[in-house]
Amino acid sequence: MPEEMSGLEAALAEASSPAWTQRARAGRDLASFADVPEAAEVLVGLLLDVEDTAVTRQTAEALARVGTVAAVRLIALAVAAADANQADWLQTGVHDALVGPNGVPDVAVACGTLARDQEEPVRRGAAKISAWANGTRC
């Protein structure tokens, strides 16, 4: 466990780097910690990164690959708060995960669970992600 926490702390520190490559790496590294409150807050910030869309895309892809309700919930929150450009890159990141070699069917299941979330923005974001996921499986 101590090694895992040092990985978490290192990724949290990287998330505020001025270098987009380090922020993108932090997003990928933090995705598995989506259920940890400190990581969740930072991940939403990375999903809505105002300086580089690669950070948005790679963080969304990493969270979609994790595919847990906690991970997809963070994408849903970001989708609800995103401007049109950010939403496009969030969608691209989710799409990248869904069409990858190990597609992620859990995203649709997580969206089904999030459709009943207490927070309206989460329900709204999950509905959009669900539509994206369904659009990929033509």
Score class of each variant (00 low, 15 high):
1 M>N: 03
1 M>S: 03
2 P>K: 09
5 M>K: 15
5 M>D: 14
7 G>R: 06
8 L>T: 01
8 L>N: 02
8 L>R: 01
9 E>F: 14
9 E>N: 15
9 E>I: 11
11 A>D: 08
11 A>H: 09
13 A>D: 12
13 A>M: 09
13 A>I: 08
14 E>K: 10
15 A>D: 09
16 S>K: 15
16 S>H: 15
20 W>Q: 05
20 W>H: 10
20 W>T: 04
23 R>T: 13
26 A>I: 02
27 G>V: 05
28 R>V: 08
29 D>E: 15
29 D>G: 14
31 A>Q: 00
32 S>W: 12
36 V>R: 14
36 V>Y: 14
37 P>G: 12
38 E>S: 11
41 E>A: 15
43 L>V: 05
48 L>G: 07
48 L>K: 07
50 V>A: 13
52 D>H: 04
52 D>L: 00
53 T>W: 15
54 A>N: 11
54 A>I: 12
56 T>S: 14
56 T>Y: 13
58 Q>Y: 14
58 Q>V: 07
60 A>R: 06
63 L>M: 06
64 A>F: 06
64 A>G: 05
67 G>D: 04
70 A>H: 04
72 V>D: 03
72 V>N: 06
73 R>N: 01
73 R>W: 02
74 L>E: 06
75 I>K: 04
75 I>S: 05
75 I>W: 10
76 A>H: 01
77 L>N: 08
77 L>H: 10
78 A>M: 00
78 A>K: 02
80 A>F: 01
81 A>K: 11
82 A>F: 03
83 D>H: 10
86 Q>D: 07
87 A>G: 12
89 W>H: 12
89 W>L: 03
90 L>G: 12
96 D>E: 10
99 V>H: 09
100 G>F: 02
102 N>Q: 12
103 G>A: 09
105 P>N: 04
106 D>Q: 14
106 D>M: 14
106 D>G: 13
107 V>Q: 00
107 V>F: 00
108 A>E: 02
108 A>W: 00
110 A>Y: 04
113 T>L: 10
115 A>K: 04
119 E>Q: 15
121 P>V: 00
121 P>D: 02
122 V>Q: 05
123 R>H: 02
124 R>I: 01
125 G>M: 03
126 A>F: 11
126 A>S: 12
133 A>Y: 06
136 T>S: 10
136 T>I: 11
136 T>K: 06
136 T>W: 05
